[in-house]
């Protein structure tokens, strides 16, 4: 056993050095993957933008930029609203449904009234179904881009200016836009 103690010792040192490098590499992987977990958040948004997963629409204003109006096609756009828990507003579309030609700009409005005895800041969160259509629904101006403060008892008519992209896949003829209204007074103050 003692004859090759030296070589055994150097072997052992080698092993320890190897261990350290391997551990360091693996710890880097761990850190990278922890970061990747968070990176998935923006990646998911990119992924949704590309695929229209979950019907997320862009939350910044688009500019009206179309190659023309396709009057041979008519697309039905439906509006629905829903209040999340705990926001005592009356909130509804003024019209439920509108027919548009792709490329044609339209303005519709939504009515909101704060029924509570205190001031509330609301935030409407849009969602489009079918999800694939979200990329073809362009909002030029929308109340959902900003927070909506309403004093107790006051009401407002809020505008939505939009157009449907001329490239909208031909198998989509109905588009539903839903707004969910949240009370964000606490977060905004």
């Amino acid at each position: 056993m003692s004859s090759d103690t030296n070589s055994a010792k150097s072997n052992k040192n080698n092993t320890l050095a190897n261990n350290n490098t391997t551990v360091k590499k693996l710890l880097l992987v761990v850190l990278a993957m922890f970061g990747f977990g968070f990176l998935l958040v923006p990646l998911y948004d990119v992924f949704c933008d590309i695929t229209g997963l979950n019907g997320k629409t862009s939350n910044t204003a688009a500019s009206y930029n179309t190659t023309g109006i396709d009057s041979s096609r008519t697309v039905k756009v439906q509006f629905i609203t829903r209040n999340a828990k705990g926001i005592p507003w009356q909130f509804e579309p003024v019209i439920n449904e509108i027919n548009v030609h792709p490329g044609e700009m339209k303005v519709v409005s939504f009515y909101a009234k704060n029924n509570a005895s205190y001031d509330i800041t609301g935030q409407a969160v849009p969602s489009v179904s079918p999800g694939l259509a979200a990329n073809y629904f362009h909002k030029i101006e929308c109340f959902c881009f900003t927070q909506q403060p309403l004093t107790a008892g006051s009401d407002v008519e809020m505008g939505l200016q939009f157009y449907v992209d001329i490239e909208l896949p031909s198998d989509i003829n109905t588009l539903t836009l839903s707004y969910t209204l949240y009370d964000i007074s606490e977060k905004s103050s």
């Binding site: 209040n83 828990k85 705990g86 926001i87 005592p88 029924n115 509570a116 005895s117 009370d183 007074s185 606490e186």
Partner: peptide, 21 residues
């Protein structure tokens, strides 16, 4: 009474208390 009625009608945000109005 007013606050009591208010919470029943409007609920309370961020809790399980719904608006029953």
């Amino acid at each position: 009474i007013k606050d009591h009625i208010d919470i029943v009608i409007n609920g309370k945000a961020g809790t399980g208390m719904q608006a029953y109005g």
